[in-house]
């Protein structure tokens, strides 16, 4: 008897399955750990473009100097570094002209810190928009990375100016190396590591504001732990300090970048692989945490 009943029920279930309709949107409390809906991101491509445009256009509205500020900031920073680290502290620049050496480090560092800092307050600065409308949240941090890249390109022109000027000056000999072909890889890595950390930190800050304070001086500290104002080669081989700085994944990207243009930097073969793996890991964790946070952050922010 029971068997018959079971079969009967199964038949019904089969019918029910056929009837199950296809839904375009299903909203449920929980979702998979790693959800990267690329199709949705592509559908919102126009929004990405609009956000990038907004970031670039509105920053220097109602300023007299306008986009010139993109140049002024790195020039002044370079001047301060030349004075403080070059002249007063007398730190080595690997025999390179000081402006070129510092500027090279500054623009690549600016790119990273721009990507990281701008993405790390995604939830805080966009809580009004996010609280009113749905679109793939990842669009916002991605747009910040792209506008960071555009800002980098503008500052890169400045760097090129100094670079070419000093190249034809007496007493300096430096030039590009074949590592220049790695430039796109380096820029992608730098942007992605900034994005990964940014995603991680914005998720944490959305509930616990404590991390906001950590970010402010954390970026400063990490800069000193990266070979920006000193060449990695100037550190004593085998010293703890050098080991620590080599463990910083940013160090290798920066050194490869410097080597590509200046031909003088300490590059380690496994360095770029280490940085690459690290970037993928951070980005992966960042996206997981970001996805989990975006679902409910409106309630906790």
């Amino acid at each position: 008897m029971e068997n018959v009943k079971c079969i009967f029920e199964n038949k019904n279930m089969g019918k029910g399955l056929n009837k199950i309709e296809s839904w375009d949107v299903v909203i449920k409390p929980k979702s998979s750990w790693f959800k990267l809906n690329l199709r949705e991101l592509i559908r919102y491509y126009d929004l990405l473009v609009m956000f990038i445009k907004r970031d670039i256009v509105t920053v220097y509205k109602q300023t007299v100097l306008g986009p010139l500020w993109y140049f002024i900031q790195p020039i002044l920073t370079t001047a301060v570094y030349i004075l403080v680290f070059g002249k007063i502290a007398g730190m080595s620049t690997d025999g390179l002209p000081k402006p070129v050496f510092y500027l090279c480090g500054i623009i690549i560092w600016n790119y990273f810190s721009e990507c990281f800092i701008k993405t790390s307050d995604t939830f805080l600065t966009n809580q009004n928009i996010f609280g009113k409308i749905y679109f793939p949240r990842l669009i916002v941090p991605i747009s910040k990375v792209v506008s960071g890249l555009i800002k980098f390109c503008i500052q890169f022109i400045l760097f090129l100016g100094f670079y070419l000027y000093y190249m034809f000056q007496e007493g300096y000999s430096y030039g590009p190396t074949w590592y220049l072909v790695l430039l796109p890889v380096l820029l992608v890595l730098m942007g992605m590591v900034g994005l990964g950390f940014g995603l991680l930190f914005t998720s944490l800050t959305s509930k616990y504001r404590d991390f906001k304070f950590l970010i402010q001086f954390g970026v400063q500290l990490v800069m000193y732990a990266s070979p920006i104002i000193y060449p990695l080669g100037s550190l004593e081989d085998g010293s703890t300090l050098k080991t620590v700085i080599s463990l910083n994944p940013l160090s290798h990207i920066i050194e490869y970048f410097k080597y590509a243009f200046l031909g003088k930097a300490e590059i380690i073969d496994w360095g770029i692989w280490y940085s690459g793996l690290f970037t993928i890991l951070v980005l992966f964790i960042g996206i997981i945490v970001f996805n989990r946070t975006e679902k409910n952050f409106v309630d906790t922010i």
């Binding site: 375009d24 909203i27 449920k28 749905y134």
Partner: peptide
């Protein structure tokens, strides 16, 4: 904008 604690929405 935010996700449910229980239940589902299909559209």
């Amino acid at each position: 904008i935010t996700s449910p604690t229980e239940g589902s929405i299909k559209a």
